[in-house]
Design a protein around this nucleic acid. Structure first.
Lengths: 150, 150
DNA sequence: GGATAATAGTTGTTTTTGTAACTAACAAGC
DNA sequence: GCTTGTTAGTTACAAAAACAACTATTATCC
């Protein structure tokens, strides 16, 4: 880890320190998209994540979503409540195991999902567009590894 | 953006969506280091960021730190208070402009900084170590661009 | 030089998160 | 079948973050 900009420091470069760098990149990269689901749909981050999971994978339990999104069950629980209040999803108890409830989007939820998904696709393309295709492939591969997705 | 794992979905792949992917990678990559400054020093993220900035760049104002770390001034203000309470830094008013205060680490702050910095260097090396050197260079370059560092 | 605006930093209030304890349902062992 | 343990999800309370309004000081400009 070198430090080109401040060679008079002690050899540690904060702007290249991966936890800091990743966090800053993640913040910058998500801020404009955040505005969409926040200002336009009044959603929190966990809420759109639940919405996206249900939109993508159909019916899921809170636990399954939490596991895939690495999100604590209390956060999921609150997001589900909120989405339910806004009529974006409905729950149905599992008959075999009555602790479990299956979550699925309502038509309203589906439509919100489709709109946000399309925006997300464009948004991702715009972010990726500033790099070479092979570079962006390397980036995603490394990030998936860091994220523990594979 | 293709979706190999769930080809029966609608072509959107959440695990490759950059804002989500970056955030997950950032979370995973920082969790173990977070434990160090949290459990061992009782620090919050913003507090170690202030500490690191002062350790790296010497005397700075709250505003300068906030700008470099992209952190809101209220968060910086509270972190500075906390670090001051723990005798990690001291403030001195600027004589030219008495709104400004210059922040600098105390010897105790310096020593905490050095310890955390050494851990950070090792930690970064461990993270980077799982990739090729040229790949990691590409990763950092792209992340710096995404983060708006250059 | 006095009104107005801008700036550095703080404080107060509201949201959101984190953590732990909780309920309800099921499972296992005996 | 009854104790003990586990699991899905919720709730309550404490910690932290977000946001807006504030103080104190300096800059602008007529």
């Amino acid at each position: 880890m070198r430090n080109d900009k401040f060679p008079d420091t002690d050899g540690f470069d904060l702007q290249n320190f991966l936890p800091f760098l990743l966090n800053q990149a993640a913040e910058s990269a998500s801020i404009d998209f955040q505005k969409v689901y926040k200002d336009r749909y009044g959603m929190l981050r966990t809420e759109w994540r639940v919405l996206f999971h249900l939109g993508l994978f159909g019916s899921m339990t809170a636990k399954q979503i939490g596991h895939r999104a690495k999100t604590h069950k209390t956060k999921i629980s609150r997001a589900v409540h909120q989405l339910e209040n806004r009529r974006f999803l409905k729950r149905t108890r599992d008959d075999q195991d009555r602790r479990v409830e299956w979550l699925a989007l309502t038509p309203m939820g589906e439509s919100a999902y489709r709109e946000l998904r399309d925006i997300a696709v464009q948004y991702d393309a715009k972010l990726a567009g500033q790099f070479d295709v092979d570079e962006i492939a390397i980036l995603r591969k490394m990030l998936r590894r860091l994220a523990g997705f594979e």
